[in-house]
Design a binder for these strands. Sequence first.
DNA 1: TAGGCCATCTGGTCCT
DNA 2: AGGACCAGATGGCCTA
Length: 357
Amino acid sequence: MLSRLFSEVLPDVQRLAADWVEDNESEDCKAKDGEHEPCHLEEDDLDEPQEGSSRAESEMAGDDEEDDEAEEEECGDENGGDKPKKRGPKKRKMTPARQERSKMRRLKANARERTRMHDLNSALDNLRKVVPCYSKTQKLSKIETLRLAKNYILALGEILRNGKRPDVVTYVQMLCKGLSQPTTNLVAGCLQLNTRNFLTEPCSDAARFHMPSSPFSVHPYSYRCSRLSSPHYQPGSGALNLRGHGYGSGYEAVYPPGGTSPDYSSPDYEGQHSPPVCLNGGLSGRQQESTETDRNYHYSMHYSGLTSSRPGHSLPFGPSGARSGGAHSENIPPFHDAHLHHDRAPPYEDLNAFFHN
DNA sequence: TAGGCCATCTGGTCCT
DNA sequence: AGGACCAGATGGCCTA
């Protein structure tokens, strides 16, 4: 069943990411070697960089009529002196008509290229929607989308192979492998929301906010609980350093046992925007921590809002921070904006069931 | 202000 | 010949 599930849900992901899987290593090497080598323009190209006498234009102008013959003769005569003859296609004089045609061809080619890139971006958008942690406004970059998709496929494949749900930390590690620190925090933040009940006994709140189509149960407080009550969380430090306590010892170091609900009336809760985890161990003390912190906080917040938008699901606070008297950061996009992709496609229910076996 | 990301233009190459 | 694909160059925008 799961095989069918993946074949239905992930063909696009697989198709798009397959190349990435294959080329990942080579691309990294390419990047190290400096992939933006300046192109070596030939002297002829430098003469008229816009539309004058580039070699390609000369070649593209091959659809000209009879007058070309005479022009070619001229070109040949130019080299008839002491200088050795130039090899390669002979240059043709750019008549106004030829220039016009060349310009039109170029414009058409540009339009095609634009369309092609738009299609590619559209496909990438579709890919963003099926990988974990999707947001309309705070989109993953192209490269990070591909990396995450690759990891996601590998992780799902691993699940299929083993036939059992993975350890959450391992799962997160697999997803975040090779991702940049901001993306790692982003994904971890999203996943952490959903992994709360993966690890702890469901409480009444968890039952209330359970999302049936998510691979993990959702506890809207999970992120906040961990940040507020974890002994390892320090306001302003920016990170709960999972690595510092060892992955092996587990998530519970991050999530305090019992999962006590935070005191939402406490002013301490306000403004503590710390990233959920530090999977790569590189966030603490970095300059970026505050921004990534905010970003992750936004994601978690929106996700909570998403759950609240479901019929029969209520939230103690709204997307606009109703709990804090309606104060709402301007930077926070609409609450329904960010969510886990598992919240959409019916096949994910199967996956959800799989994770909750 | 530097760096990252992106869209676009452009020319080269390959394929039909 | 024309289209698809690719990669380099460039400039704009955004963020730390």
